[in-house]
Amino acid sequence: MPVLCSSCSHKRAVLKRPKTAHSLCKECFFWAFEEEVHQTIVAAKLFKQGERVGIAASGGKDSTVLAHVMKLLNERYNYGLELMLLSVDEGITGYRDDSLETVKRNQEQYELPLKIVSYEELYGWTMDAIVKQVGLKNNCTFCGVFRRQALDRGAIMLKVDKICTGHNADDVAETVFMNILRGDIARLRRCTDISTTSEGEGVVPRCKPLKYAYEKEIVLYAYFKKLDYFSTECIYSPNAYRGHARTFLKDLESVRPSSIMDVIHSGENLSVREGVKMPVQGTCDRCGYISSQALCKSCVLLEGLNRGLPRLGIGKHHRLHNKILSQQPLTEKEEKKLKSVDF
């Protein structure tokens, strides 16, 4: 006997929602999924009428579903937003060039303007070239730091008021664990925020409309909507530690499906002891981007790459920042330590 949809009670259910375990028909699932994103946007007051919003588009499932739902909700509820796609080309052969093709197809389908900024034009380095110099172990540090700034630079070129990213509930929950495991209290406090206000010049406010959407439901949505997305993992292997956190979260979800939301609830209700030092935000002396040090992470990494000292940006070498800024030579010992790649 077919199971009936628990929402409309007359159509046949085609899926069991990972989030609530209800059986739903296709239409009711679409409706529920979209409506939840809408409720999130409304409740958190993510946008204002008339804003220009850049959707960070990677061609992956999250950003593809985000672009689709944002376009749909903007029309359904008259948000009055001017939407556009913003992509970063890291310069990874066989990964990013293919996924960018997906983004270009999305652009045509959704009739949204697209801006692509590349690492090569911004930094003079592609990820392929970076990996050649630093190896496979810490390349994600470069990728993450560069992407963050690249999105901001692209957003400024596009003159958008906000960037929305495809971070989903699983990503947020995983980040809560990562920050606990790193003992990073400053990030732990911020990571469950659904939006960031501008932290300074050159930083565009960001928000996560899919914050409460389960990754599994995003995949179900893309599958039943037959959305075109690129599903290959980054070929430069991801951080092992994060992999452990992700597996742990998946295991938790299998024991108790609400776990993902439960972890986010925990993150939203943490309180940090007064007197715990939080990094003071200033700006980078070289490029003006926000930074708690004299040089921003991106400039330090770039300096390391350009001088053939890849370890400069890995670990903490604040003491060397002033030397770099004033272009003083490093000692032989310092050079040697920063050169080796076996980290």
Partner: peptide, 11 residues
């Protein structure tokens, strides 16, 4: 948002 999900999935 969990409560909303539950409502939206039911009659």
């Amino acid at each position: 948002m969990t409560l909303i999900s539950e409502q939206l999935s039911q009659t």
